[in-house]
Simulated assay, not measured.
Amino acid sequence: MTVSAPSSPSPAAPTATPASAEPRFRGLWIALVTPFLGDGSVDHIALAALTARMRSAGVSGLVACGSTGEAAALSKAEQLQVLDTVLQAAHGLPVVMGMSGYHLGQTVEQVQALAAYPPLAGVLVPAPHYIRPSQEGLLHWFNAMADASPAPVIVYDIPYRTGAVLATDTLLSLARHPRIVAIKDCGGDMAKTQALIADGRLAVLTGEDAQIFSTVALGGAGAIAASAHWQTERFVELVRLLEAGHLPQARTLWQGLLPWVQACFAEPNPAPLKAVLAHAGWMRNVLRAPMMPASQALAERLRGLMAAGELGERSA
């Protein structure tokens, strides 16, 4: 497939103000795990039930086939089947589809194929892994994806997975594209985060769960979180308190959640989460190699935190 050069947005387009960041990408979004059966195939029944639980907990939206969903271990057909299940179980709750690759033409085709599905809230696109292109190459990559996408694009800035660092100026240039509307921020650069929030054209959603409090308190739009699969209502309330400016209450809630967040990432994600959700009876504790289940020590630590959280919810 030949990919044409990405179009450039009109220079006459008005400059956005900080208040104009895409309103649909706000609040707490869940980066869904992908449940598996004992034989390693996708457990669509458990996935539908998980989607329904997250919907009833009041989250703003869901992300299917992100890194938490072990998308790299799923075939392209499996990824689309996961999307089908999540869309059906979401019952209108916004759904974002994760997309990744390093072959420009093939990845563009994957993005274009999403036009055959019910309307998506967005497409989550990281930089091409392994390639490590220049900033000019990154501009070309994301503009090509946005030109092809039937849905708004969320830039996934996660250099520790892709090997590519998106500079602040590059992200500000991408914000000029009418379909690039948000960023999942895992860049680890708070100065860049604050610059994007101040610019206001991209909705800044932290993808680092430990930075939920700081990002939203600074004016970010919200979070795409993994650890919020459990105690989901508390995470939803945390973001609501921060958005309303109720910092003392939010700080107290966050201090109770932080040990949980830290434990969920003590070993490679999503192994700790799957141990938690398996203990709750929501799915099997099965991952696809080379991902391995959480260690017994961490699983016991997580079970202790689960019990403490449940007690806290009952006494609240």
Rank of each mutant, 00 (worst) to 15 (best):
R176M: 13
I131S: 01
R201W: 07
V165C: 09
T170M: 12
G98V: 08
L218T: 01
A217Q: 10
W141T: 02
D185A: 09
A191Q: 12
I212D: 04
A210V: 10
P152Q: 07
A164S: 15
Q211V: 12
R176W: 11
V125W: 01
T206P: 00
E136M: 13
G220T: 05
Q135M: 13
T193Q: 10
A146V: 01
A151Q: 09
T206L: 13
T215W: 02
G188W: 10
A195M: 07
T162S: 06
M190Q: 13
Q110F: 12
R161N: 14
P133V: 00
H103K: 14
Q110I: 10
I183A: 06
V111K: 00
D147L: 08
V95Q: 07
S173Q: 14
Y102L: 14
T206V: 04
L196D: 05
A121N: 01
P152L: 07
A144N: 08
V204P: 03
P152D: 12
C186L: 11
Q194G: 11
A115E: 10
I212W: 06
V204S: 01
R132L: 05
L166G: 12
A113I: 11
D147Q: 04
D189H: 10
I154W: 02
L171E: 12
Y102N: 14
A115C: 05
L205H: 07
K184A: 01
H103G: 13
R132G: 04
R201I: 02
K184Y: 11
V125K: 00
V204Q: 02
Y117R: 15
P178L: 01
L104Y: 11
Y117H: 12
Q135E: 14
L202W: 01
S100C: 14
A217V: 08
A210R: 14
S100V: 10
G188S: 08
Q135L: 13
Q106F: 12
V165H: 11
P94H: 12
H177N: 04
Q135T: 10
M190Y: 12
G122C: 02
T206K: 01
A113Y: 13
G122E: 05
Q112P: 00
A217N: 08
M97H: 15
